[in-house]
Nucleic acid binder design. Structure first.
Lengths: 333, 333
DNA sequence: CTGAAAGCGCTTACAG
DNA sequence: CTGAAAGCGCTTACAG
């Protein structure tokens, strides 16, 4: 694993390492390095298979061309897709991505942040768990370029990109109400997460508009730990509550609930969901979905982050609320 | 973003930076640093919020505590789950993971490898696309610790961890044959990938054993680019070929094919698949699946990689073939 | 047009 | 028991 260094090239060509460095960084014009010298340097570097050592460069410049991404769980298809779009755009801009999963734990979240700082990431993209205001403010104070994605935190001076959660959930619930439903269950995950909270508020607001009181008895907030069992429990209870429909607050909640629902007479209910996983295409139900614009989420996030990195004096904080589209999966069997 | 360095701590305590470094690296015992000195150093470091600068440490030690992971596409649930298990085990051993998606392109694959080398990853986990033997051999020659996952390449002196693809596919096809099927379609993705090739061979071998000739007319190998359209085309053609069943070579092939199949009388066919995505739980078909032991895949891979990193003289090459389980999803509607 | 030199923050033999 | 010093590979202001 012995690598060719700038020094090796310099020695071979009997020039200084400064010359080699300047050429290889494309600064040969501005430092008026001779054209033939520049050419010789480039050729020799290619021949010898020179690859810059980022550790050395980072130590000198303070930049790593690496971004840190923390999501709740990279194996959740929503976050996996988001990661993919972020990767694409990062790559197009010369950055690579390190990732970590918080499992909704503040402790793990903080630990990942510390590791990213040690590794000198140029910026971070965070989908924060609950109670992470403090950790985030510490990053703000350290002037670490930072964008929250999927989950903004109100009141924090930090840019965020997310969908209009309240409105999406309001629209979805409205459709069920217009369709005659009055006993609408709400299956959520971690209702104290800011984005899920908004989704609950949208649900409640739609009910209110139709003069239907919110019945907290048919509102479920399920923990991340032991998720599958928790959902099974919640579904079992919910099915005794005389409901006529359900709103799923996320893809994972929806899929897992439908799996559990197969043991019941699930066809008699009507469904709505934030997210539209492929599973719904196959489920033998009519379900109205909000499709999240994941590509836009990723790209807007990276766009803001890269601007903050490239212009550290830029103090603009942006709160982006992306609008969403309704899609409907019809029972086709 | 001004950070506390070892020097800052040293100056504050009026000791040398060597002392601070030794204490913070837990070498105070072996260098017989005074107990009270060590304690004071640790306290001050904590107070001042010291975080080591990995760029400096890496430059000095050559280690980054970072691993590189290249998959075909991180948004594919199989790879997303694999990434998650790798992340967990890496984290438990003090490593972080950078990832990249090759999109089955040799060019992108090589580019990602080069970037990982520039960033001095301590080792790489690769699911290589076609025609990447050369790139991999270059890594071997550079003595970069390396394990292939999901896809071993025969004849290369590189450790690999994968399922027993031929056997899994053989078993699966056998079940259809025993069930009376004789016109069994095979839907694959990139049949020249080593793992997919093995799956094809298992399919062919099972047919042969039952005296059924392989009909290449009902064997489909679909390109990664334009995947969804390709599948739709392939399904359209396949449905004119008088088949009685299909084997799906991967989760993505299966899900996408079933989506396309909804426009046809898909219920008359019998199904088998490598992988068991949740979508199958909802599809209105009987399907026999091979469940890949993704957790074992990830953990065995990392286990071998970490051993290679920690003991660079270890020249043992391991080819791991994990055995798989059959699971059956029954039509329950 | 090009070179000599400093310094980024760390670790580690070596000296005492 | 602790300090002074070298050096990892790079970039960049400065000198000529």
């Amino acid at each position: 694993m012995t690598r060719v260094s700038i020094k090796d090239i310099a020695e071979k060509l009997k020039v200084s390492s400064a010359t080699v460095s300047l050429v290889l960084n494309g600064k040969d014009q501005s430092s008026r390095i001779g054209k033939d010298m520049a050419k010789k340097v480039r050729e020799t570097a290619a021949e010898m298979g020179y690859r810059p050592n980022m550790a050395a460069r980072s130590l000198r410049t303070g930049k790593t061309k690496t971004l840190g991404l923390i999501v709740a769980d990279i194996s959740n298809p929503f976050f996996a897709k988001l990661a993919r779009y972020i990767e694409n755009m990062a790559d197009a801009n010369g950055y690579q991505v390190m990732f970590g999963s918080s499992d909704e734990s503040t402790v793990k979240f903080k630990k990942l942040i510390d590791l990213f700082i040690e590794k000198n990431v140029d910026g971070m993209i965070l989908a924060p768990p609950q109670n992470s205001e403090e950790a985030i403010m510490e990053l703000v104070n350290r002037r670490v370029p930072l964008v929250l994605v999927d989950r903004g935190i109100e009141g924090l001076p930090v840019s965020s990109v997310q969908i209009d959660n309240a409105r999406a959930s309001f629209d979805l619930t409205n459709i069920l109400l217009d369709d005659g439903c009055r006993r609408i269950g709400f299956m959520a995950y971690n209702i104290d997460l800011p984005n899920i909270r908004k989704r609950y508020e949208g649900y409640a607001k739609a009910l209110e508009k139709h003069g239907v009181p919110v019945d907290e008895d048919i509102v479920y907030s399920v923990d991340f730990e032991g998720f599958e069992d928790n959902i099974e429990q919640a579904v079992a209870t919910l099915m005794n509550k005389d409901i006529d429909s359900v709103v799923f607050a996320t893809n994972r909640v929806g899929v897992q609930s439908l799996i559990a629902l197969q043991s019941y007479d699930y066809r008699k209910l009507k469904y709505a969901s934030i997210d539209n996983p492929d599973e719904y295409l196959f489920a033998d139900i009519d379900i109205t979905c909000i499709e999240q614009p994941i590509k836009d989420l990723g790209e807007r996030t990276l766009d803001i982050l890269l601007r903050n990195i490239e212009d550290p004096k830029n103090k603009v904080v942006e709160y982006v609320l992306l609008q969403t589209n309704l899609t409907v999966f019809l029972r086709n069997k």
